[in-house]
Design a protein around this nucleic acid. Structure first.
Lengths: 303, 303
DNA sequence: CGATCATGATACCGAAAAGGTATGAACTGG
DNA sequence: CCAGTTCATACCTTTTCGGTATCATGATCG
């Protein structure tokens, strides 16, 4: 009968694609590992690895099984942890990743509500650059994360919890600061400050798209990872930036914000891995429902 | 080390609360089972059962573990099945439960779209009385179901896919048939035909609520399980009924529908068990997103 | 109240399975 | 063609599992 150990062995081999190193990682010797994998393939009736010429690789069925096996192992381990935590009355620990923008918008209310309602849960909040959040949730590093809406990602469930418009941040002395509303065309030729694609892909994409709607490719003069740095640089008059409106809450001197015509909106979502058995996750997501953005669906839903 | 077999044993004992019968179900004798459970408790460091005087019962931690263990076992078995299916190129089988109302509204488009995009998936569609759907999904009988919105249910994720108003169905000769719009008050004293609470709790609830808003308790003269029967009986002039507007699509003779003032709306949701590893489920849910009801959230979401 | 029954735990044994070492087979690369 | 790498096989030892027999405890009933 197939058991969880064989799954662990399989994942180790699938991740290293090397029986020797996988065995090392599992603290067993190589021959038993080979035998267990062979037994697993025999019992499943499925070829998981392609063994051609000293190089192991996954078959399509193996890739499928790797995905599932990872999820099963995480659930399995979490189930054991849950039992121990439940025994001690600590219903759980919850680790939430978020990007800086959330710290000024949806996160504070959400965290406050949840922690008030669940005092026995230890909550870990950790700020990370937006681009790293999806992977961190998938790998189990975080139980949930607040990030820009990345569209559908395999293995992630998301729900929109905040939506805000972008605006233009600039130095008070900047010529464009005289206007109340600025159109995309007027940005042509202006030196922009923005995050690199890796740090916040969706935000960067929104900025580029908006510029294209004005008929030009944006000139990104400076790339910096942190949003705080972007606005400080704008306040130093080193360029202008398209930022979410909530950045105004930073209260930075020598910085003004102006409306954009047909301003692009950017959505914050809460993302989690379905199948995550952390008992504290579900109530947290339920709280997140309550802080949903201004959109009729949240009024109409009875849930 | 804890393994999947011990989890299976635990679930069997937890479900029967009887070591002897659990052992029988597992096709082993009782002593090894006792030993495995004891080992599991020792390795977890958690008391799962309260053994007092010939009666085994679950501790709170045991209940928690039972829930998780069931989910883990389902995922585990599905992972093995997935591997076999993937090997054969049949990416999957998907079984969908639905209530009769969905057959005239959201289901046809959804099923057609999904099957067109996933010809290799074998889809099983099965009609069931609405009240049985939630349990059928939780038990794994169906991968997903289309039902009336039951509000939050532990272990179920739901998404609204259809919303329609209720209307009044009556025989053309009925006095109320002369009016175009009927208020709740005017229904007072009228003999209603409706489903019993067990068959369609949410529908029944909506009807009762609407009558109360008219200041009276409804008189349900006839209770029948099937919606088709309800409208036939109305066509036989045995009473009137509050039914979803889409029932008109049945095209029944001697039946007319009239608008209700402040008509209650009833929502259809698609429900599934998060953690269900069936590879065909995710694409099906994605298709379901596309047939979301007339509500801004579906227009605004980029996903 | 004592005999009997029901139920889970313990003791002990043989069988199955897991892991370890040594070694073989197949391929690579100089 | 030989050394090196990498996975598979052979064989042995240890562990673990399930089975039978039996015990301890509390319930049930005449």
């Amino acid at each position: 009968m197939i058991d969880i150990r064989q799954m662990r062995y399989f994942v180790a081999v699938a991740e290293t694609l090397h029986f020797g190193r996988a065995a090392e990682r599992l603290h067993i010797s190589q021959p038993p590992l080979s035998r267990q994998i062979a037994a697993l393939e025999r019992e499943l009736g499925v070829h998981l690895f392609e063994r051609e010429q000293r190089r192991a690789s996954l078959t399509p069925a193996g890739r499928r099984f790797l995905e599932d096996a990872r999820a099963v192992l995480m659930s399995f381990d979490q189930a054991c942890r849950n039992a121990r935590l439940a025994e001690r009355g600590e219903i759980g620990e919850l680790s939430i990743g978020f990007m800086m923008h959330a710290a000024y918008t949806s996160l504070p209310a959400l965290a406050r509500r949840f922690m008030a309602g669940h005092p026995e849960v230890h909550v870990e909040l950790r700020e990370v650059v937006p681009g790293a959040l999806a992977d961190a949730v998938l790998s189990g590093r975080f139980d949930a994360a607040i990030m820009f809406n990345p569209g559908p990602i395999k293995g992630l469930e998301t729900r929109i919890i905040h939506r805000e418009r972008m605006c233009l941040a600039l130095h008070p002395s900047h010529p464009l600061a005289k206007r109340t509303t600025i159109s995309a065309k007027q940005l042509k030729g202006q030196p922009l400050i923005a995050t690199p694609t890796e740090a916040a892909p969706m935000l960067r994409e929104a900025i580029v798209q908006y510029c294209r709607s004005g008929g030009f490719e944006p000139t990104i003069r400076l790339e910096v990872e942190l949003q705080q740095t972007i606005v400080s640089l704008v306040a130093e008059n080193l360029g202008i930036a398209l930022v979410p409106e909530s950045m105004g809450k930073l209260g930075i001197d020598n910085l003004v914000q102006r409306d954009l015509q047909a301003a692009p909106a950017i959505e914050h979502v809460i993302a989690w891995r379905p199948g995550n058995l952390n008992p504290a996750l579900r109530p947290f997501l339920d709280e997140a429902r309550a802080v949903q953005p201004i959109q009729p669906s949240s009024r109409n839903q009875t849930r």
